[in-house]
């Protein structure tokens, strides 16, 4: 019964994905046409419509290109990040992101193992590899207990197997932690009311959640921060009387901390 339920779930999930994609095709092509005719604002609006329905690497890539061309470097970096989440191996997107970061005056990103080996999107690979190693070891053990190989060899084999499984478990934990980080990551974006083409424009991290107070620190457009968690494990937010949502965020290095609105800090996974 469970197997039937599983099959139904998978089929319906596949179908649902297909439906979403088809619906998003039209605004995507509208965007391409508008961009081809030079109407960048209409193109951005069309792509944003498609983003509201579904996601694709090329969609976010095109949107990022347009934001860069219209001077919104923060949004460009945000959408390059989104595009790379969907197509991590795309060198063109990586190159564009690096270029946009440099143009925004940000220091080049230093890739670490968390960006590649333990990247969020690698978690499924780690889970399956560890699972396969675990069961393979178990079954090999069953077979080899009756074999005539020496006890030393058996012990070495068990230690090796345990080491592989332990490393796989560690990799899963680390990738899962990076997913948590990613869920809290946001890109600093200049709100639409400000002049985004102004190179000196910055996003202020305030001492308190509210517009009129001193800034703890300032962020350049495109800079990545992580939103703090509250005691319940949720994102630490505050909604003011004028219904503005504020996030308590800190830079990845931890050097900057303060409150900014959800218009100024746009989360990557939204």
């Amino acid at each position: 019964m469970k197997l039937v339920r599983l099959v139904v779930y998978l089929v319906s999930a596949t179908f649902a994905c297909g439906v979403d994609g088809n619906e998003a095709n039209r605004p995507f092509y509208d965007g391409v046409r508008a961009e081809a005719s030079g109407d960048l604002d209409t193109a951005i609006a069309s792509y944003e419509k498609a983003v509201a329905i579904s996601h694709s690497a090329n969609l976010h890539g095109n949107l990022a290109n347009l934001h860069y061309k219209t001077g919104s470097s923060g949004k460009a970096i945000l959408h390059y990040r989104k595009a790379l989440l969907l197509d991590p191996g795309n060198p063109e997107l990586s190159a564009n992101l690096a270029f946009a970061r440099k143009a925004a005056g940000l220091s080049p990103a230093t890739p670490s193992a968390d960006d590649f080996h333990f990247a969020p999107e690698s978690i499924s690979i780690w889970v399956w590899a560890t699972t396969i190693a675990f069961w393979l070891g178990i079954y090999l053990g069953l077979i080899l207990t009756r074999s005539y190989i020496s006890g030393f060899t058996k012990i070495v084999g068990v230690i090796g197997w345990a080491g592989i499984v332990a490393f796989g478990t560690y990799a899963i934990w680390r990738a899962d932690r990076n997913i948590d980080f990613l869920a809290r990551e946001a890109v600093a974006v200049l709100p639409a009311t400000t002049n985004e083409g102004n190179e000196t424009a910055v996003i202020r991290l305030r001492r308190y959640a509210g517009g009129a107070n001193d800034a703890n620190a300032e962020l350049k457009p495109g800079e990545v921060v992580r939103i703090d968690k509250d005691e319940k494990g949720q994102l630490k937010t505050h909604v003011t009387k004028d219904q503005v949502k504020w996030y308590l965020a800190r830079s990845v290095s931890g050097g900057k901390k303060g409150w900014a609105t959800d218009k100024e800090l746009q989360r990557i996974l939204r």
């Binding site: 998003a24 969907l86 997913i179």
Partner: peptide
């Protein structure tokens, strides 16, 4: 900054699901 004229594979969510 080359524009892609075809959408690549559509995904419902950006969040990698373990």
């Amino acid at each position: 900054f080359q524009t892609e004229s075809e959408p690549s594979e559509w995904r419902k969510s950006l969040t990698p699901e373990p």
